[in-house]
Write a protein that binds this DNA or RNA. Structure first.
Length: 844
DNA sequence: GAGCACTGC
């Protein structure tokens, strides 16, 4: 069929010229310009050698693009033009244009790191800035810049600032094309004071219904808001003779399709961000935008993922408004004011800045990149996030001494998160590879369970939600019944999980022997989440403490009701800045005997006296938390009093540690102490305080002694000890500044202050220093401990290293004040009084 | 005291 002319056709000659001359170009063109269909064939005609690979962010988009291109070129799909997505490939050796999704492109890069069969890579919809697309672009550019000058790159984007990509591609030309869209009238309808969102939505929908014809699309942040709005909108919809329909990612595909299909009746469509990028709704003439979205974020300092509800960006707002102008002029009502509008961020923070980077770092290393921090990312991730990713990979056994292990290489091939890859590879130790593949699939994909009423689930008891899923899926496979297991399954996700199982099982190690089939699942889950073991606070209770001291609460639908120890597999870290309890959706029991032997020593067995316990107990990212007395885990609610204890450097450990600066000696002592306490010997990356420059200056000469270069310095065992304490910028400074050039004030003493989590609770801190009533002795030397009492504004109120006077004066005063302010809180027993009562006659 | 964005090998 003769292709219809599209706006982008006008600029294709420029694109080809740019690509031929510079090897790369950036094409900025709005949706509807036709870039997806027209650019790859143009490259083909321009005699690009090798395959032309185009990246699409979604499977449907990849399939549709390949189909359209093939049709326009009059060829059968899978011959000259093909596609490859997960579970589906229509391509052959003759395929010149191959449309792929992100995972496929990353896999191609792993199998063929220099992309030798590929002549050009086209990145479509690059403005979406997914982590995978960022990574793929950076890898491709690295290949082009180093060894493949002939490789062509075209980046296509609707909105992103093209100059940045152009610069990244070594000064590639930017070409812009017009699109086709109808004007959308945008008006602001700010939220009314304290009114509920659904009421503001209701008003706006009424207005939109009067002023515009066609369907009304309402953008809301999540399912909860959608349900509440649906309830409020029902009567209005009836009076308009319209239907209220919901649209979000948890909906089964049939229902999504029904919403996307044209309708004869007028509709009010309540949608999440699916409707912003993934799905196009034909009949929409008006948009009501609440201006909010939920974004996932993994905060490296917390180490848990969480969902945040945030204001959308300008880019999203424009994209959402544009949804009203696809077929005719439209209307958009924004539920925020003009002044708020002026303060919107230009664009959403790209995924590389917020996501868990473990998978990306593993891919990078498998691709051959020795140092992810040195990698030329399109946009650099946060240093702390990179460090957290490396720490996790180390913990999972993928890394050793900064290099990928054979386990790590095997993990990189498995198409799931590194944790789940590790789960699968645990089959080598515990057997049952196919079962573990199913467990990994269930954890990787959408939950196969029907969402359950809490009360209905209260009867369930089990060892593991993961095992429940595995058993239910196995029962479904065997009997075809969705309710054959402990909990009811949803057909779509259940079938998908089984299919993913088949794919994953190909990567599972063979195993002839193994432990019991159920135990295998539990142990493999522990292997995947070694850092998320939690201990229940009270028998049968919902609340627990995770290693590191974080409080968690089990979802009511979890069947893990009894186990004292369990792994928090799927967990939401809760709201930012608040030390609210994390919410565990998926848990799995653990037996104490499965923890590493070193983890279950008691403090006495480990040879620590009471004072040492207290010192090491400041930050417990240790399994030992779980078996020690539960002193550090009382969580009070609400107190905003900020209390922190600071640990000081050692006073006279010099000889013992063969370092003459007391500050360094003490620090090293403490770090070693923490290290011994960790079952894997690694430092808790996230929990330790960063070192300030004073400390750094004190340390540098020690580190540098006898060494001339940073390369030598890097090998210093002390630096290794301190790595977890140094901030990334400090490490880089070490790298930049030759250590011998740093001036060190002689005899300087340095104070270290702990940054404790918030809201720090005095009760907890006080309990942590029970052992510190007297100046403690460690490794034959006396350790001075500096105590800081901080006011709510963070300013130190009192500093002392005189332990007896702290306990006698400060502690008593603070304790009384807190009791007065928070009378309802169950404060711990006063250790001083308790002791005093037990030993009558002793005065304090 | 309840609470679950969207993809993807």
């Amino acid at each position: 069929m003769p292709p219809l002319p599209l706006p982008v056709d006008d600029v294709l000659p420029q694109v080809i010229a740019a690509v031929n001359e510079h090897g790369a170009c950036v094409l900025k063109a709005p949706t509807g310009a036709g870039k997806t269909t027209r650019v790859p064939p143009a490259l083909l005609e321009s005699a690009v050698a090798g395959q032309i690979v185009m990246l699409e962010p979604r499977r449907v988009a990849a399939r549709a693009a390949a189909r359209r291109i093939a049709a326009e070129r009059g060829s059968a799909l899978g011959r000259e033009v093909g596609y490859q997505v997960r579970f589906d490939r229509k391509a052959s050796d003759a395929t010149r244009i191959l449309v792929v999704t992100e995972g496929v492109l990353l896999r191609m890069l792993q199998d063929d790191p220099l992309l030798e069969r590929v002549g050009a890579v086209v990145f479509d919809e690059f403005h979406e800035r997914s982590l995978s697309a960022d990574l793929a672009l950076a890898l491709t550019q690295r290949v082009r810049a180093s060894v493949r000058a002939d490789l062509r790159i075209v980046v296509m984007s609707a909105t992103v600032d093209p100059s940045r990509v152009a610069a990244f591609l070594g000064g590639a030309p930017v070409i812009e094309s017009k699109g086709r869209a109808f004007p959308v009238e945008i008006e602001h309808r700010p939220r009314e004071g304290d009114s509920r969102l659904e009421n503001d939505v209701l008003r706006a929908v009424r207005e939109a219904a009067e002023r515009a014809q066609g369907d009304i699309l309402v953008f809301l942040p999540g399912v909860g808001e959608i349900k509440r709005c649906a309830r409020v909108l029902q009567p209005v919809a009836r009076s308009l003779d319209a239907d209220v329909v919901e649209l979000h990612g948890e909906l089964p595909p049939e229902k999504q399709d029904a919403v996307v299909a044209e309708s004869t009746r007028r509709r009010v469509i309540l949608a999440t961000n699916v409707a912003e990028t993934s799905l196009t709704l034909p009949g929409v003439r008006a948009v009501v935008d609440a201006g909010l979205e939920r974004v996932p974020r993994t905060d490296p300092s917390i180490g848990l993922p969480r969902l945040e509800t945030v204001r959308i960006s300008r880019e999203s707002a424009d994209q959402r408004a544009g949804r009203a102008g696809r077929l005719a002029a439209g209307l958009c009502l924004r539920l925020w004011s003009r002044s708020e509008d002026a303060r919107l961020d230009a664009r959403r923070e790209p995924e590389v800045r917020r996501a868990d980077l473990a998978g990306a770092v593993l891919q990078l290393r498998a691709w051959g990149e020795p140092e992810p921090a040195d990698f030329p990312w399109f946009e650099a991730p946060r240093a702390a996030a990179l460090e957290a990713a490396e720490a996790l990979l180390l913990r999972l056994g993928a890394l050793e001494e900064g290099r990928l292990t054979s386990t790590g290489r095997a993990m990189a091939r498995v198409p799931v998160h590194p944790r789940l890859a590790r789960l699968l590879l645990a089959a080598r130790q515990v057997g049952h590879p196919r079962r573990l593949a199913l467990a990994a699939a269930a954890l990787s994909e959408r939950s196969p369970f029907v969402r359950m009423d809490r009360r209905a689930s209260a009867e369930q008891h089990g060892a593991s939600d993961v095992l429940d899923a595995v058993e239910a899926l196995e029962a479904y496979e065997a009997t075809g019944r969705l309710d054959a297991g402990a909990r009811r399954l949803r057909p779509g996700p259940a079938r998908f999980a089984l299919r993913a199982r088949d794919q994953l099982a190909r990567f599972a190690p063979k195993a002839s022997t193994g432990v019991d089939a159920d135990e295998a699942v539990l142990r493999a889950v522990l292997a995947a989440y070694p850092d998320r073991v939690a201990r229940r606070r009270t028998p049968g209770g919902e609340r627990a403490v995770m290693v590191g001291g974080r409080g968690v609460r089990l979802d009511g639908a979890s069947s893990v009701r009894e186990a004292e120890l369990f792994v928090c597999a799927e967990v939401d870290g809760g709201r930012r800045g608040e030390r609210s309890e994390a919410w565990v959706r998926t848990a799995s029991a653990v037996e104490r005997a499965w923890l590493p032997a070193s983890a279950v020593r008691t403090t006495a067995a480990a040879g620590f006296d009471e004072a040492q316990q207290a010192v090491a107990g400041f930050r417990r990212t240790l399994y030992e938390d779980l078996v020690l007395e539960d002193v550090a885990v009382q969580l009070a609610r609400g107190p905003e009093v900020e209390t922190a204890l600071a640990e000081a450097a050692a006073a006279d450990l010099d000889a013992a540690l063969a370092l003459d600066d007391p500050a360094v000696a003490g620090l090293r002592m403490r770090v070693s102490c923490l290290r011994t306490w960790r079952p894997d010997g690694a430092l808790p990356e996230v929990a330790l305080p960063a070192m300030d420059d004073d400390v750094l200056r004190t340390l540098l000469p020690h580190l540098a002694r006898g060494r001339r270069s940073f390369a030598e310095l890097r090998k210093a065992p002390l630096l290794d000890h301190l790595r977890g304490l140094l901030r990334w910028d400090q490490l880089q400074r070490l790298d930049r500044e030759a250590p011998e050039h740093i001036e060190v004030p002689s005899g300087s003493r340095v104070r270290l202050t702990y940054e404790l989590g918030r809201p720090p609770v005095l009760a907890v801190r006080i309990q942590e220093v029970f052992g510190l009533r007297e100046t403690p002795t460690v490794a034959g030397g006396r350790v001075k401990v500096l105590m800081h009492l901080l006011a709510p504004n963070g300013r130190p109120q009192q500093i002392t290293d005189d332990m007896p006077s702290f306990w006698a004066n400060t502690y008593a005063g603070v304790r009384a004040e807190l009791r007065r302010r928070y009378p309802k809180h169950a404060w711990p027993e006063d250790p001083l009084n308790a002791k005093a009562q037990r030993r009558p006659g002793r005065r304090r």
